[in-house]
Amino acid sequence: TIDDAFRAIERAIQAENEGRYREALKHFLDGGEMIVTAAEKEASQKVRNLLLHKGKEVLEWAEHLAEWILE
């Protein structure tokens, strides 16, 4: 659900702030994927587009974090 997705993102932010970057990455990926999944089930085109945009933002952040971890 969207609530689960945002809880995962909150955990990711907390982990990132505490320097637990790999854990943060996992939570960002989980949250982003949950948002995209919820968007695919959404009946309203406007809400679907907003959710897809937010999911994409979260997944892009996860990608940047992963690249930073690997440096």
Results as ranks from 00 to 15, higher is better:
T37P: 03
I9V: 05
E42N: 05
I2S: 03
E16D: 15
L70E: 11
R20C: 09
L70C: 15
A62Y: 03
S44T: 11
E40R: 12
A39I: 10
E18G: 06
R11A: 12
L65E: 00
K56Q: 09
A15L: 15
K26I: 09
W61P: 00
H27P: 00
Q45E: 15
K41D: 06
I13M: 05
R11W: 09
K26G: 05
V58M: 08
W61I: 05
A8Q: 08
H64R: 13
R11C: 10
E23F: 02
E71L: 07
L59I: 04
K41Y: 09
V58L: 09
L50C: 15
K46T: 13
V58R: 00
E42S: 11
E18D: 14
K46W: 13
A15T: 02
A62L: 11
L52P: 03
I13E: 03
D30W: 11
L65F: 03
H53S: 12
E16K: 11
N17A: 10
L65A: 10
L70R: 11
K54R: 07
E67A: 14
L50H: 11
I35Q: 02
V36L: 15
V58S: 00
G31I: 15
A62M: 07
V58N: 00
I9G: 00
Q45F: 11
G32L: 15
V47T: 06
F6L: 10
L52K: 07
A8L: 15
L50Y: 15
E33Q: 15
A12F: 08
Q45R: 09
A15I: 05
A62N: 00
R11Y: 10
A43C: 12
T1L: 15
N17M: 12
H27Q: 07
G55M: 11
R20V: 03
L59P: 00
V47L: 10
L59H: 03
T37D: 05
E60K: 11
A66F: 11
E23V: 04
L51M: 04
L52D: 02
N17Y: 12
F28R: 00
E60D: 09
D30A: 13
L25D: 02
T1Q: 11
I35D: 01
L65Q: 01
I69T: 01
E18N: 09
Y21F: 11
M34Q: 05
H27N: 10
V58H: 00
H27M: 12
L51N: 00
E67C: 10
D30H: 13
D30T: 14
V58W: 12
T1G: 10
R20N: 10
A66G: 07
D4C: 11
W61E: 01
T37V: 13
E71P: 05
E40G: 10
R22P: 03
D30G: 04
A39F: 10
E40W: 15
T1I: 12
R7N: 10
G19H: 05
R22L: 13
I9A: 01
Q14G: 02
F28Y: 15
W68N: 01
G55N: 03
T37Y: 08
I35H: 03
N17E: 08
A8T: 11
